[in-house]
Design a binder for these strands. Structure first.
Length: 265
DNA sequence: ATGGTTGGTAGCCAA
């Protein structure tokens, strides 16, 4: 089973990119973030036409929005509200092979990395705190669930997940307090970073490049903000992981590229 | 140090 996560930055603007993704990678499941479309306007027909007959969609006007598109039938689906907001940052589905899938869009956090003066940064930290509590509660519930969480986590945790560790230490996405919050989530259920499972942590690796660079590839000032994690019972089932860097040139491009894993459940 | 770009949507806000 091939699962892709992608912050597509408007699904309607980049529908043809989804089709291209199906032709180049043929994913079974596609998790999108920043769909930027309210549910009544979601392009169900086009995506069904690409073979994604099963869809879980949570969108709103203007911002955010997540979707799970699947060729494989999924039984139940949903999504929760976080931080007391109904802002469409979570969708979930139960896949065959007893695999639970969660698609998250963690808040970006604004510009100033101080929760006292920046409500967006406070929201981001609170979101990760609630995710860690959710994960701990799941673990206490027992059963060692086979779970995949994916999405735009908006945090680049490793020094090699950013183009310059030193220069980004006080830049939102790579500050120590964010990295600590993300690590608390990871440790809550002993989540495994499925991409770093295959690509060594010494190697620079990014999934996002700013729109503001003149030449994103030449400057290569990227960050790895998009992630796929699995619970320990799925570790042995992981087969492959890839970040589809070339998609940064699929015009008009999203500033994020797809992240892929293959799981043999 | 600053400004640089993009998307949704109708004036800027969010990233």
């Amino acid at each position: 089973m091939r699962i892709v996560t992608w912050n597509i930055n408007s699904v309607r603007l980049r529908l043809a990119h989804v089709e291209r993704l199906t032709k180049t990678l043929n994913p079974d499941v596609i998790c999108l973030q920043e769909t930027k479309v309210q549910d009544p306007d979601f392009p169900h027909d086009a995506l069904a036409g690409y073979g994604y007959k099963y869809r879980a969609v949570r969108g709103m006007k203007n911002y955010n929005g997540v979707a799970i598109l699947s060729r494989i039938p999924f039984s139940a689906n949903g999504g929760d509200d976080w931080c007391g907001k109904q802002d469409c940052r979570h969708a979930s589905a139960h896949l065959p092979g007893d695999i639970e899938l969660h698609n998250f869009y963690i808040p970006s956090g604004g510009d100033i990395p101080d929760p006292k003066v920046n409500d967006k940064f406070a929201h981001k930290l609170q979101f990760m705190t609630e995710l860690a509590a959710w994960s701990k509660k799941r673990k206490r519930g027992g059963g060692a669930k086979r779970t995949v969480i994916v999405g735009d986590f908006n945090v680049a945790p490793l020094e090699t997940d950013v183009w310059s560790h030193k220069q980004l230490l006080d830049v939102v996405s790579h500050t120590p307090v964010e990295v600590e919050h993300l690590e608390r989530l990871r440790a809550a259920e002993d989540w495994l970073d499925a991409v770093r499972h295959f690509i060594p942590p010494e190697q620079k690796l990014y999934s996002w490049w700013s729109y503001r660079a003149r030449d994103w590839r030449a400057s290569d000032r990227g960050r790895r903000l998009d992630h796929i994690w699995v619970t320990p019972p799925l570790t042995a089932s992981l087969r492959r992981a890839e970040i589809v860097k070339d998609a940064r040139d699929w015009m008009p491009a999203s500033d994020h590229v797809p992240v892929v894993v293959d799981i043999d459940p």
